[in-house]
Write a protein that binds this DNA or RNA. Sequence first.
DNA 1: CGCAATATTTTGTGATCAAAAAATCTTTAA
DNA 2: TTAAAGATTTTTTGATCACAAAATATTGCG
Lengths: 225, 225
Amino acid sequence: MTIEKTPTAKEKLNLPTVHERIYQNLKERILFGGFLPGKAVTLRGLAEDLDVSAMPVREAVRRLIAEKALEMHGNRRVSVPLMTQESYEELSLSRRLLEPELAVRAMKNLEKRDIEELARIDGLIDNALLNGDVEGYMRGNHQFHFFIYSAAKSPIMLGLVESLWLQFGPFMRLVYGRYGTANLEDQHRQAIDALRARDEQALRAAILADIGQGMHFMSDAVHTR
Amino acid sequence: MTIEKTPTAKEKLNLPTVHERIYQNLKERILFGGFLPGKAVTLRGLAEDLDVSAMPVREAVRRLIAEKALEMHGNRRVSVPLMTQESYEELSLSRRLLEPELAVRAMKNLEKRDIEELARIDGLIDNALLNGDVEGYMRGNHQFHFFIYSAAKSPIMLGLVESLWLQFGPFMRLVYGRYGTANLEDQHRQAIDALRARDEQALRAAILADIGQGMHFMSDAVHTR
DNA sequence: CGCAATATTTTGTGATCAAAAAATCTTTAA
DNA sequence: TTAAAGATTTTTTGATCACAAAATATTGCG
């Protein structure tokens, strides 16, 4: 009988390194509202919160800086970036350039049951909207888009788009927290229909429309200050 | 009389931190041919080469991994990524989506004397091509493009494009090193003309043509293996 | 010779600490 | 009271080390 290597706790949870775990933790908070724009971030502070040494926090934070999810100032302080009109405009344009393309590339890989899964996620989003559950909406919306984009099997473009989402996450949370989710309507159905029909043009239009609504909502906030 | 703080060597050279200096060093090597695809990179090895401790090397390497300039494998080893047909295709598409847009955004900020500077850089490129100076060509080409793109004052899009260039740099160097630069023709003049005429459509076409030639040259190499 | 088992070396990871830089608080003088 | 000067604290940065995991080299056996 061969001796089975007993899986360590690490392996069970699929969390190979500490800095990776910290990275995922921080990324979630940035994407779904744990960190608001302007929030100061210190290595020591995070290390104490998360009960680890400064080293893995350092690696996770530097990675997020490289991904533009955090910002390092001239004085070496780190914070969650504020949204400016210029940044907002660039993010919006970049999304419109990349995301429809990614969706089209995904289309040929999305089977019937994948589209059912998307419909299920869309149901969760509707629910969150009804309940005014901002975090739930943001999680669902992210899941919906990246379920599609991941199917494109285009890791380079996916990485570009992930960086964009990290950059507007905190601001989006701020806006929805202030104005609520009541005015949001679910724009995902057209995308689902387009995927079912395998209609490339309709899919592009649907993704553009969805980006348009989300970003337009933020556009108001960035202009009125 | 006030006591002037004597500027340290660091400040003179504008190299605030060690890891920043290492980062710039590695980035140059990746962009212009110091590192070829597949090359293994170790923290201790680089630290010894550069005569610093492992720590700042670690930060620089992790940053480059986040920017997709280096690749970390499942076994935690780091290397310069190999080019695959899929990667090549994604890089090409991403460039075609982003760079013309960036050039158009730059156009309104490029004055007459900026365009003269571009013509000067283009002259250097011609020279390098004549002399079969691969590194000189790559440096000039990079300088030409990023002189334009930087004028767009669009840091987010610029960051996306920088990541793309880091990803094809090593492979481009490999290809040009193998096939020479004789077959390359200078495609920059149309871009300069379009900028002079402030013709947006012509500028888009010129940037697309330049991307097309550079990437097509690599395309041959990635298919024939 | 071929191949599996074992030993050695190499390498990334995480903790700890000293030094430098920046921010904050305190003091002092007009 | 206010603002500049000085002292204190906080924070990042870089070096060093122990440890674990992976790769490589060595040994031993058929």
